[in-house]
Every structure is written in C-alpha cells, then in structure tokens.
Design a protein around this nucleic acid. Structure first.
Lengths: 217, 217, 217, 217
DNA sequence: AATGAATGAGAGTTCATTCAT
DNA sequence: GATGAATGAACTCTCATTCAT
C-alpha cells in the first residue's frame, strides 16, 4: 500500500520484521501454494520455499501440516467473521431491511477483498481438520446475527436461532460459486443485490411486525 | 439392455452387466472409504478392497485416482440434480410460492437421502478436479430453474439468470452446515421450512406481478 | 550349495525362489548394511538396495524399521540358541566336565559360524527393541542348560537356576570381545579352551558330588 | 583447584572451573536422556536442555554428537576400570582365591553403583564409535589383571594373557543381563557369589601350584 | 561466551500405478 | 480379465550443526 517512496533502505528492516511476521508470511505462502495446485499439491516444503524460509523453520511455528492449514483457514475466516460481527454491531437497532443490506455487504466484501484466500481455502474447509474451524466460526457469526436481529426496530423473531442460522449460511453457496467461476465484479455486485433482496424479503416475512413498542416508547 | 434372446452369445452381456455393477460397487466403496478417514486417508487399494476387487480391476474402470473421485462426485450430484430437475418440471406453470416449496424440498430431500455420500463428497467437491464437476452440475440445475421460473403463473422475472443462480446456490450453505453438524431430522425440517419461506419471499418480491395474462388467457 | 554344474538355466528358478525367500534375502542384507556403517548408518532404503529390492517391498514384509532389525536379531539368536539347545540335549546324562565342553563349543562355534551377523547385530541387541528379543533368547538357553545340568552323572546342583544363568551368560563377554577385535581363529580356540576350563572347574566346584546313585543303580 | 588467592585474575579460573563443571553436567544429562528414550531418542538439543544449557554451548565442548556419546561412555568405563585397577593393586601378592573375590566384587559394585549409567550406555558401547572406547578400556583392565595375577602367592600362570582376557570379559555378560532385567539386589549378590566361585575355581585349576616360593621367602 | 533460530540433507514411510502371472 | 506384488517418487517430519546476535 505504501508507495515506493524511499527505495534506499527497505532491505534490513524487512528482515527483522519478517522474523516477527514469519508466521504471517508462511500463512500467505500457504494460500498461494494452495492457489496454484490445490490442496493435493500442497507440500510443507513448497510452502516453506514460497515463504522464503526452510521447512525446518516452518515446523518451528506449526507442529504439523494439518495445523498449518487450519491456521491459514482460521486466519481467513477470522477476518471474514470480524467483518460480519462489525456489521452486526453497526446495524443494531436498525430496521430488518437495513440489517440485511449491511450484513450481506459485509460478508460479500470481506470474501472478495481476499479473493485468493477465499478460493484457495475452500478445499481446506472441507477437510476434516478444517470442518472444526468452520463450525466454530459459523457459530460465532450466528451469535452475532442473532444478537443483532433481536434489536430490529420493526420486527420481532420468535425463532431467532433458526433465522440466524439461515442468515449465516445462505450467502455461502452463492459466494462460493462466484469465487469458483472467477466472476466479474459486475456480476458479483448484481448477485449481492439479489442476496440482499432475498434476505430482506425473508426477514420481513418471517418476523412479526413490531408496532406499539415503536410508538409509545 | 438387449435381452439374452440368442443363447449363442450370453458371454458378453453378463460381462458387461458385471462391469457396470463393478463400477457401481467401486463408487459406493469410494464413498464409504471417504466416510471413515476422509479424503486424506483414501487410497485406491483401500477402495478396491472395500469393493471386493483388486486395485488392478479398479484401474480398468478408472484411469487414475482423480477420475475415480470425480466419478463418485458426479454420480452423487447427478442424482441430486435429477431430483431438482424433476421438481422443476413438475412445478412448471405453478405459482412462485409453489415453485419455491417444491424445489427446496427436492433439493433437501435428495441431499439427505444419501446423507453419507453428501458428507463424504464435500471434500472432493472442493478439490480442483471436483470443482469442474460441481460447476457443470450447478449450471444444469440453474438452467432447469430458469426454465421453470419462466412459466410462473403469478410472476415474471426480468433477470432470470440471476434469480436462477441465487436459487440454485442459496440452499447449499445451510444444507452443508446441517450435514456437517449431523443435525437431527427435526432441525433439518425446521431449516427446510425457513429456506422455503426465504425463497418464497424472494421470488415474490423480486418478480413483477403477472395479472392480465392470467385473467384473459 | 549346489555346485555350478549346469550353467544354463539358473536364471528363472532363483527368481521364484527369491520371491519366497525375499524375507531371508532382506535379513541378510540388513546384516551386511549393519556391518559397513553400523546401526547409525543403516537405512531402510539402503537395506532394500542391498537386498536387490525396493523399499516398498521391504515394507511389505516388515511393518517398520524396528521390526526389521528385531527380526534380523531374532533370526541370528535363534540359530545360536538352537545350537546350544542341541548341545544340551546331546550332553544329557554326561559328566559335568563333558557338559561344559559340549556347551561352550556349541556356543562359540555357532557365534563364529555366522561371524558377520554376530558382530553386526551386537548394536541391535543393545537397542530397546532388541533387548526384549535378547531376554527371551537368554531365558530359552537358560532353561535348556538347567534341564541338562539336572541330569549330570557326577554332580547335583542345589541352585540350578543360578548356575544356569551364569553358564548362559558368562561366555557372552569373551566371545563379544573376540568378535569385536577380529581375533584369529587360533586365539578364538585358545580362549574357547580357557572358557571350557573355567566352566568345567565351576561346575565341578559348585555342585555336590553324586556317588551312591551312580554306584548302586 | 587453586583457591582464589590473587583477586586479580578471578576471571579465568572460575570460567575453567565452570567449564569443567559444564562438561560434567552435560555428560550426566546425556546419560539421563539416554535413560528415558534410548539412544534413538537422544538429540543434542535434548541433552543440552537437560543440562540447562544451549546446544551452542554443548558444541563448544564436544565437536559432534559422536564424541559426546563417546565421552559419556568413557567417563563411565573409566570409573569402572579404575575400581578394577584399584582392586588389582590391593590384591597383589594374595592368593588366587582372594584375587578372584576382590576383583569380582570391585567390578560388580562399580557397575551397580552407577546402575543407570551402566544400563543407558550399553547401547552406546555397541555402536561403532563406542567399540573403540570399549576396546581400550578392556585392554587396560586386562593389563591390570595380568599384573596382579603374576603376583599370586599360590599359583603361576603360563598363559597370563589368556587368563587375563577371560577374567576381564567373563563377568560382563552376567552383569549386563542383570542390569537389563532390573534384577533385585539379592539376586545380584547371589550371582556375584557364583561368579566369584567360578573365577576362583578357574584360577585355581588353570594355574600351576607355587610351593617353594611360599616356603622360603 | 552463550544462545537458540535457522537450515536443509536425509530418514522413514506411503501409495498411485504398472505388469507378470 | 483379474490379481496383487513390486516399484520408487514423493511426502512429512527430524535433528545435527552453524552462526548472527
């Protein structure tokens, strides 16, 4: 992001910085290796090489291949979930429609910001070790969504858990499909709009209108 | 297919029948091996053993491991898609609401009928070789959905492709999550109901009301 | 063993014979690899190469490196113990002096017949996995010795177990030292004579003279 | 060793003292690591950790792993040999029987005093690098034994070297077996008695009675 | 002088694939 | 056509050793 302003001494600092951020560098390398060749072609040696270190170093930070992959997945999902949670917090007290728009936007944006990681880590999420991470993250987002929904200004939900579940999972399929097909930004936005529409309609229909509360208090 | 009319050549037909059967047996064995141990523990030898044949035989039907997995995935998705296509055919001319209900039920039912396969093949679908199969299948179901939507008795859709896309992918996430968490039949049904509600609301909202057509024709 | 009488067709038979005796070939290769480089330099690949097979094949017969080594050790010790047991059987009813001579000769001869194996496997015996094998074998020989001693025509032993233990272990040290130093056959024989002398003297001294029994029966 | 008399150079001495101490600590750590895990699980890092230092420091005292192990073995064997040499010195001029008793006791006691080390280092002794150390030590003890035997008050030995060799190696096997089987002190003592008996008998039998010398001198 | 992170060669082991039987 | 032993490339992971700090 920083422009190549001073091309003189970017040499040493990165070395130290890298030492500290080695984990970060390795995780990024992991995603990259995943991208060209898929999970089946990912080897610990390859990841280390891509990261500019040695296998030995990699194993100093990750006990085994599984945990490396799990960490890469977790790192990515944590970012996405954080975005969703942030959106949920911001949308508290708003109308159901506003909530739908905010949340969908946060999710889609987060997924496409790190487009490569999203694509690459799909296979990892499907693996046994990844499933656990995914489940935890799903629960986290579900909780955030429920908390938000409970504060909707124009609707009440008797079956909060179910609605939260649907909300937290329904966008996954479309987004995954878009990622896989390398869709254009334009079509992504078009689908995002449809998703918003869908969730909006859903939240309006499935909730009970909240009227008195609004008026008197 | 041809009955053994001529008793002269009963040699080939049974052999072929057996071949077809063997392929089927191997594919089922593949799913089972996938189920206990995951993709990482699947080996061609193991699949062959489970199928009651030898590795050599397996390689007579599948050129390599990848195509074996792809075939297993394809077999499963074909069944699911067939169910969806059938539902789409049946729902033609009905209302948008009826369409939503029919399609969601077909999809969810198909996925849970072969629950084990659905779970097991998830990881395969995420792999590079699987992605292609998935994409083809998604397109097929999308086409079926679009064809159906065009005949809705109470709505018209200007952006058929987009709506079809959303419809064909939105249920994937929730269903995957349910499969992964080994959800009870009860919760599956509850979520199915919510999905129906959501799609119903979506189809009603996003389409233009078709009135004149109905009345006069 | 068969002299190279017909040099025409020794080609095919060995192949099949080898298939059956692959285990044997591998074990011999194991000893050879052990001989040049010691335990530390032994690798499964190296053993397989020396045996004229592939690592994969080696692992078809032995689950891991440990069991390969244990098998090699067991094979050797079994031969040695068999020799000792045979000697014990033959010496039953003889005088203590005759027993000593017979047993010592059997042991020393057995060890030096497969001189290379004896040397090479020493390190294996010292390893954790080898210790078990050694202990079992030691017990077997101890039992054989006790059985024999009980039948000595000129002596009775009140502490059979102890005497058997000493007998079965006392020759190990000298023999090991001889093997390690690549001693000449001459010195081996000289030491063997001393060992016989020692055991003979020991058996005579530690046992009670058996007189009446001899005379009257 | 020198007390810190001159306060001017208290720098080097402590350092050296510490060095010596460090070596000692490392060697002990080596034995301990050997004890839990065997030679196969011993790593230089583990030894350093157990010793409370770093690998780097370890490599300042030992050029490589082999020499570390050799040093640990040597340290142990030196103690044992010293005990034997001491016994030999003390027994000079005594009767053959007294010599046998003294020497056997010294050997067995020395081995069992540092029981753990004795057990742990067995595997090291069997390794290529250890064999050399063992051989040197064996020779030393053999020399001591020969020197002693030459002074026996009641016997003369024409084949001193051979007798010395047998004496120095015959107890190794039994003791090793006892160590490996974690025998009770009681059985150790019982076997020690038998060994004494055996060597006593041997020394008496194999030597020529020395009479005149006794009388006149 | 001490440290311990980094290196990377090399070990054990697995498994897709072939092919003689 | 079926079999499964044989192959060996490739993978994960370890650890002796070095060297910048």
């Amino acid at each position: 992001m920083a422009p190549a302003a001073t091309p003189s001494k970017p040499r040493k600092t990165p070395v130290q910085a890298r030492s500290i951020n080695t984990v970060e560098v390795i995780l990024q390398a992991c995603v990259q290796v995943l991208l060209d060749g898929g999970l089946a072609r990912l080897t610990t040696t390859r990841v280390a090489q891509r990261a500019g270190t040695s296998v030995g170093s990699l194993y100093q930070y990750f006990p085994d291949k599984q945990s490396l992959l799990a960490a890469a997945l977790e790192r990515h999902l944590t970012q996405v979930i954080a975005a969703v949670e942030g959106a949920c917090a911001r949308a508290k007290g708003k109308t159901a429609a506003a909530m739908a728009a905010t949340v969908v936007d946060a999710f889609v944006s987060a997924k496409f910001v790190d487009h490569p990681a999203s694509r690459a880590l799909y296979a990892v999420a499907a693996e046994v070790s990844g499933a656990l991470v995914v489940e935890q993250m799903t629960q986290r987002s579900q909780r955030a969504l429920c908390d938000m929904l409970a504060t909707a200004s124009d609707r009440t939900y008797s079956n909060l858990a179910e609605v939260g579940f649907v909300l937290s999972t329904a966008a996954v399929g479309p987004v995954q499909a878009l990622l896989a097909s390398n869709a254009s930004l334009k079509s992504v936005r078009a689908i995002q709009q449809q998703l918003t529409l869908m969730m909006c309609a859903y939240l309006k229909t499935t909730g009970t209108t909240r009227r008195a509360a609004k008026r008197r208090t």
